[in-house]
Computed example of a mutant assay.
Amino acid sequence: MVSAVFHSPLETMSAVGAEPVDPPATKVAPSQSVRAEPVEATTGTSTSSVRTARIPFDVRAAWLRVLPPVLGIGLLVLLWELVSLRSSSGLPTPVETFHQAVAVFSDPFYRKGPNDQGIGWNVLSSLQRVALGFGLAAAVGIPAGFMIGRFTFLSRMFNPLISLLRPVSPLAWLPIGLMVFKGANPAAIWTIFICSIWPMIINTAVGVQRVPSDYMNVARVLNLSEWKIVTRILFPAVLPYMLTGVRLAVGTAWLVIVAAEMLTGGVGIGFWVWDEWNNLNVRNIIIAIFVIGMVGLLLEYALIKLATAFTFEEVKT
């Protein structure tokens, strides 16, 4: 085995201006194999210590990200505790509500009759109504918004109607639904539909009207059909506005379904809240409030992620 020999540059220079001397060549027998030996660096550090530098963990940024939400929740719990201790109306404390929540969520899908079901079934029933009403509103509102924004005649025709009907409270439509559909469940879906359709129509129409005129001029020059104008030009440009309308609509729908179910009865998170109030079970009402907030937050977060995935603009809460 032949080991490599390293020479210092000072050793190979005999004087200033002298030519460098090449190290003598080493002959290796054909039967011998040359194997390179690991050589340590001259600085004394081993090769195992030379690794890719890791990105340092920013403790301060992580602490600033975690600390404010924890302080906010802690402040809420503290105020709740103070109010419950000084209240004479029997408001449960956070500890009592937590123990009740453990009991409620230990079996959220029980069935003991048509009006006595777990909180899981009630949430799923409310989500089902929201999905049906919201889906119908999207199927009608988004194409209507494209047409109103695309054609000036339709815009002038429907703008007064939208301005008149949009400020009406969604619950004001509930008696109309009960009279027309003769049932509590279709009436609740109708209420979700009528309150969800306006944000979709308005935001989609505004997005169509804000499409740059240069795009439409190019479409006229190329003699594109109306279908290609909608699918190739309008839809990509209007998508951020449309998703914003969808996000606003689903938030409104989830707010309205609770109040609608309180009035119509049946199975649903709104009916569950009203039923627990009739039973004077305030702890379950507080649990339902947190459940409603968490479900609404998850719906909002999912739609924000959807909007971020399909648009090039930064979508923030």
Rank of each mutant, 00 (worst) to 15 (best):
K182I: 05
A103E: 11
I287E: 00
W272L: 15
A172H: 02
A61R: 08
K182A: 13
V230K: 00
G141C: 06
S14T: 14
I289G: 09
R60L: 08
D107W: 01
R65N: 02
A307R: 00
E300T: 09
W227N: 01
L10G: 03
P92T: 05
V230Q: 02
T311A: 09
V211A: 04
F271Y: 13
G72E: 00
L132V: 15
A187D: 04
R150Q: 04
S196A: 15
L303E: 00
V70N: 03
Q32A: 15
W173A: 00
V34H: 08
S126N: 07
S163A: 12
S87M: 07
H7C: 04
I202F: 07
F98Y: 13
H99W: 12
H7W: 15
D58A: 10
F271M: 02
A288I: 05
A103M: 08
S163F: 03
V315C: 06
V77W: 05
Q128T: 10
F181E: 01
I73D: 00
G265V: 10
V123F: 05
I142F: 07
V28C: 02
V34T: 11
A184V: 12
L164A: 12
A15R: 12
L161N: 00
P9Y: 09
R283I: 00
R129Y: 05
E261C: 10
L171Y: 05
G268D: 02
M216H: 13
L91Y: 08
V168I: 15
L255M: 14
F312T: 04
A219V: 15
V230L: 14
F193L: 13
P170T: 07
V180P: 06
L239W: 04
I197A: 06
F6A: 07
L306D: 01
A25L: 14
D22M: 11
G90E: 03
P160S: 00
A309E: 02
T93H: 10
V34M: 12
V267L: 04
V83D: 00
A253I: 08
